[in-house]
């Protein structure tokens, strides 16, 4: 990211203004030589509530200021957080925001990983300023489940009790039918009765 002066010259006219600022700054700070100029390192100040619940929307802000404390505006700040997932450590992007005239880059975020989240706001540097970053720790407290599946669709009344009731009713009718005949047979088994032509069994024999 270190640009040589010649590289700067080859850039478009738009950069000349910035160049003037660099020269002016360098002059003010009493640096001896432009040719060997280190780009000034701005400071990034990351700020948010130190703890949050998972899924809670928190505002993550970063102030980008030059070494003199003046805000740097229209600069892009990238927000990341460091994770270790499945034994893989990586830096996962939260998002990017552009600083306003007060040097403030602001975005909202919903942290989801439990425990300490190392949040990094980094400024990639531009033609004028060197890169800079800041890391702060966000403590995510134990909280409620965030991801939920759609509950199964249930039709009111269509449940196990309906099934059980249906089966039981049908079986009871079967038992009732058998019992009715069995009962009649038992009650009248020794009762003599006139044999009529429609009666079956022994009567036909007689």
């Amino acid at each position: 990211m270190i640009h040589s002066f010649t590289a700067l010259l080859s850039r478009s006219q738009q950069l000349l203004g910035a160049l003037a600022i660099v020269i002016a700054l360098a002059g003010v700070m009493g640096w001896s030589s432009i040719a060997s100029a280190q780009q000034p390192v701005p400071s990034v100040n990351l700020g948010f509530e130190p703890s949050a619940l998972p899924g809670e929307t928190i505002a993550v802000s970063a102030y980008l200021t030059d070494p003199l404390g003046n805000p740097i505006y229209d600069a892009e700040i990238e927000f990341h957080y460091d994770v270790e997932f499945m034994n893989v450590t990586d830096s996962v992007e939260i998002g990017t925001a552009v600083t306003n005239e007060t040097g403030l880059a602001l975005l909202t975020w919903q942290p989801r990983s439990d425990g300490e989240n190392h949040i990094v706001a980094s400024f990639a540097g531009n033609d004028v300023f060197a890169e800079a970053s800041d890391t702060q720790i966000l403590e995510v407290l134990p909280g409620e489940q965030l991801y939920r599946e759609l509950p199964p669709y249930r039709i009111p009344g269509a449940n196990m009790w309906l099934t059980s009731g249906l089966i039981t009713t049908v079986w009871l009718i079967f038992i009732f039918s058998l019992a009715l005949v069995g009962w009649a047979n038992l009650k009248t088994r020794n009762e003599p009765h006139t044999s009529n032509t429609e009666a079956k069994g022994g009567s036909a024999d007689a």
Partner: peptide, 18 residues
Amino acid sequence: YYGDLEEDLASNGDEVVR
């Protein structure tokens, strides 16, 4: 990538993605 929707992270062994 194998991941966790609760944490909103997944990894393929090389990188971690949201």
